[in-house]
Design a protein around this nucleic acid. Structure first.
Lengths: 151, 151
DNA sequence: CATTTACGTTTACACATGTAAACAATAAGG
DNA sequence: CCTTATTGTTTACATGTGTAAACGTAAATG
């Protein structure tokens, strides 16, 4: 059926719809509408439009069930989040990735388990760590080019 | 001069311009134009438009210098990045913040210094860690509500 | 001084996005 | 069976965004 969807861009409003689908796995438009009527104060027509657009761009699947559709996600939340996070890291110098992660950690509440898990990951990352991360910025968009081998 | 700019939304295209300004601190339109002509293959008019929009929304300052302007950033890169990253974490369940950080770390190259710094931060975070992070999702947008005290 | 150049400002225009009304078709109820 | 409610599809429309041409004016150059 239709071509493979590589990575449709999901907008803010559409994301609200996706969250409902991800959380419930299989939903009717009615359920999505009522959830977002409450949370977002959206008119039902708005949610209908968004469902339509998401189906159109391949983010949602539909199965006919009598007169209605059952909507289900065609892309995983994890994937969608990943492509979103990658956008950030494409906006900054690679050398700063560590700083940004640092600031994210500082800004958020973590559980003991989270911390332990992250410590383990970091331990493993040591095997692949580099002395200095490569700046991949274009000339003129980053000052690494000027003073990178300080020390 | 003008009202305080809280947090202008910077689009993808505008971000390219900001990076040039951030990297160079004080630039003329000519420098921005030539950098982006190369990297983005943009017509000079395109860069001019973006510079204008950024000034308009308060992200850039201008100082007259003879006939030209000197552009400088009015918002820090760090702040801009932070507001961008926060957008992500507003799209997911708080309980998953740790997982997302995990996946970010896995996906990127870090230096030994980065890792050590992150380890220190994590160590400090232990003092503020919680047993379980609070889900703040709206009903229907997250399945924590269903099976959160598994164990 | 007349012409070309440089640079900021205006206008343009297609497509994306948020938000929704109008419409069509079918199912459900009286 | 006719009316109403339900649910998907079309159409709508303002604002945002990417991309740029046109314009106005001052500066540089011949």
């Amino acid at each position: 059926m239709s071509t493979i969807v590589v990575n449709p861009h999901i907008t803010d409003a559409e994301w609200e719809v996706m969250r409902v689908v991800w959380a419930n796995i299989r939903v009717t438009s009615k359920e999505v509408i009522s959830t977002l009527e409450e949370k977002m104060d959206w008119n039902q027509a708005t949610t209908k439009t968004l469902l339509g657009r998401l189906v159109e761009k391949g983010a949602l699947n539909t199965e006919q069930e009598g007169r209605k559709y059952i909507y289900s996600a065609n892309i995983e939340e994890k994937e969608a989040v990943r492509s979103f996070t990658n956008d950030i890291f494409d906006r900054i110098c690679r050398k700063n990735v560590g700083n940004v992660i640092e600031s994210i950690i500082k800004d958020h509440t973590l559980s003991f388990d989270d911390i332990q898990r992250l410590e383990e990951i970091l331990e493993m990352k040591k095997a692949f760590a580099v002395e200095e991360v490569d700046c991949q910025c274009a000339e003129g968009q980053c000052d690494c080019h000027l003073h990178h081998h300080g020390e």
